[in-house]
Amino acid sequence: MIQRLITDIRVFKHKYPLFFYLNGFLILVYFTQFVIKTEITPLGYFSLYSQAASQQKTYSQNLPFNTLSNQPINIYNSKGTSFLMHEIVTTRYEILGNSSFCNPQYDKAKKLHLPVANECEKLQEFRLWYYQYCINNHIQVPTFEYFTIKKCHFSEGKLIGFEDVKIKN
């Protein structure tokens, strides 16, 4: 089998040199990204859910929140598949906000000599931007003064509690 593979590779190199080197380059890029664990490679991403998760008393999710009615706002009524964007941006707001210079990959990017900047100032505009994004996605929101993002705790489909999303930076 290995002998056949080596022969195939040799034939491939001879017949399609351009693609041989392109293949080699891609494998090198993937391998490098795998070793230094940057986020782009599908190799890293698809390891999602591969680690064992354990049962918890409550499960939390960041959600847009109406402080007048003290209720989280339903993102699943939004248009098409945009609820996914609402799940992601509210979670990432917390993760980025609590990372050094608001970038979880800041240190790694620095090590790779990539020009990284402090993104924290921009992140303070999140609430206002997200309010408008909800409106654009046909999500029913209160007036801006009653709109915020909260970490909501659920258990078996019931809302157990909620708290402010804590941002360090």
Binding site: E39, M85, R92, L96, P104, A109, W129, Y133
Partner: peptide, 18 residues
């Protein structure tokens, strides 16, 4: 679904990771 660039162009995120 609001997932095109003109829907999110002004988002405060500009995440490039590493």
């Amino acid at each position: 679904s609001g997932l095109m660039i003109h829907h999110v162009w002004d988002s405060p995120f500009n995440y490039k990771a590493a």
